[in-house]
Simulated scan of single mutants.
Amino acid sequence: MTGFTSTLLYIIRLLGEIYISIILLRFLLQMVRADFYNPISQFIVNVTHPLLKPLRQIIPSIGRQDIASLVLAYLVQMVLTCILLLIIGIPFGAFIAKVPIIALINLLEAGFYLLFLLFIGNAILSWIAPDSRSPAAILIQQICYFILAPLRRIIPPIGIFDITPMIALLLLFFLNNFIIGALASYIVPGL
């Protein structure tokens, strides 16, 4: 692979993963009923709306779950996977049957990584700026609070320490390794 090809591969992959993360954030923001007047929420809505609008006419939301956002993230991941494999030089017929599973694995990894970053960001914010009112801090807190609330009902704080973020990260790592490992090793052998 030439230097130009590897650079092109890196740029396309980076831009694709950023857009997929934005779509997944859109799903999370709607699920937690985050403040959509927040400037970051508005940016996410404006960036995802052109591709999401036609899908919403076909795929309705189910309660708080914006299924159209997940479908869009999966479709974008499939297109990104095809583009990357074509740039590498793998013939289209050789990978087309595996693209749906590869895209699912990559999308799950992106979702787990996004949650990991949100939990780490929330922990850092709680240490250095616990009462921050910045738009990013507010959204991170809203998402993490929604996800951590069920754990906090089961595991109360120990003194002044809240260990639920650590437990959530451990569960996240376990789910990531279990689900991604199972998909990669059993459904797509030789991947």
Rank of each mutant, 00 (worst) to 15 (best):
residue 4 F to P: 01
residue 8 L to T: 15
residue 10 Y to T: 14
residue 11 I to D: 00
residue 12 I to D: 02
residue 13 R to S: 15
residue 14 L to Q: 02
residue 17 E to Q: 12
residue 19 Y to F: 15
residue 20 I to H: 03
residue 20 I to N: 04
residue 21 S to L: 06
residue 22 I to F: 06
residue 23 I to Y: 01
residue 23 I to C: 10
residue 24 L to V: 05
residue 25 L to I: 13
residue 26 R to V: 02
residue 28 L to G: 03
residue 30 Q to T: 11
residue 30 Q to G: 05
residue 30 Q to L: 10
residue 31 M to E: 11
residue 32 V to G: 08
residue 33 R to P: 01
residue 35 D to G: 12
residue 36 F to G: 07
residue 36 F to E: 12
residue 36 F to N: 14
residue 37 Y to F: 15
residue 37 Y to E: 09
residue 39 P to D: 09
residue 45 V to H: 06
residue 47 V to N: 01
residue 48 T to P: 05
residue 49 H to D: 13
residue 51 L to N: 05
residue 52 L to M: 10
residue 52 L to P: 10
residue 52 L to N: 10
residue 53 K to S: 11
residue 54 P to D: 05
residue 55 L to C: 05
residue 57 Q to C: 01
residue 57 Q to S: 13
residue 59 I to S: 07
residue 65 Q to F: 15
residue 65 Q to T: 14
residue 66 D to P: 08
residue 68 A to V: 12
residue 69 S to I: 03
residue 70 L to T: 09
residue 70 L to D: 10
residue 74 Y to N: 07
residue 74 Y to D: 05
residue 75 L to D: 05
residue 77 Q to P: 09
residue 78 M to G: 13
residue 79 V to I: 15
residue 79 V to K: 00
residue 80 L to F: 01
residue 81 T to Q: 13
residue 82 C to M: 15
residue 82 C to Q: 12
residue 84 L to M: 11
residue 86 L to V: 05
residue 86 L to R: 03
residue 87 I to C: 06
residue 89 G to K: 06
residue 90 I to S: 11
residue 90 I to H: 04
residue 92 F to D: 00
residue 92 F to S: 06
residue 92 F to Q: 05
residue 93 G to F: 13
residue 97 A to K: 07
residue 97 A to N: 11
residue 98 K to D: 14
residue 100 P to F: 06
residue 101 I to V: 15
residue 102 I to E: 03
residue 106 N to L: 11
residue 107 L to A: 05
residue 110 A to K: 07
residue 110 A to E: 06
residue 111 G to V: 08
residue 112 F to H: 10
residue 123 A to S: 15
residue 125 L to P: 08
residue 128 I to V: 14
residue 131 D to T: 00
residue 137 A to H: 08
residue 138 I to Y: 03
residue 141 Q to W: 09
residue 143 I to Y: 01
residue 144 C to I: 09
residue 146 F to A: 14
residue 149 A to P: 00
residue 152 R to L: 08
residue 152 R to V: 02
residue 153 R to Q: 13
residue 156 P to C: 04
residue 159 G to E: 09
residue 161 F to C: 00
residue 163 I to D: 02
residue 163 I to Q: 00
residue 166 M to L: 14
residue 167 I to P: 04
residue 169 L to V: 14
residue 171 L to F: 15
residue 177 N to K: 08
residue 177 N to G: 09
residue 178 F to H: 10
residue 180 I to T: 07
residue 180 I to F: 00
residue 180 I to P: 02
residue 180 I to Y: 01
residue 181 G to H: 02
residue 181 G to A: 05
residue 182 A to I: 01
residue 182 A to W: 13
residue 183 L to T: 02
residue 183 L to S: 11
residue 184 A to D: 12
residue 184 A to I: 00
residue 191 L to P: 02
residue 191 L to E: 01
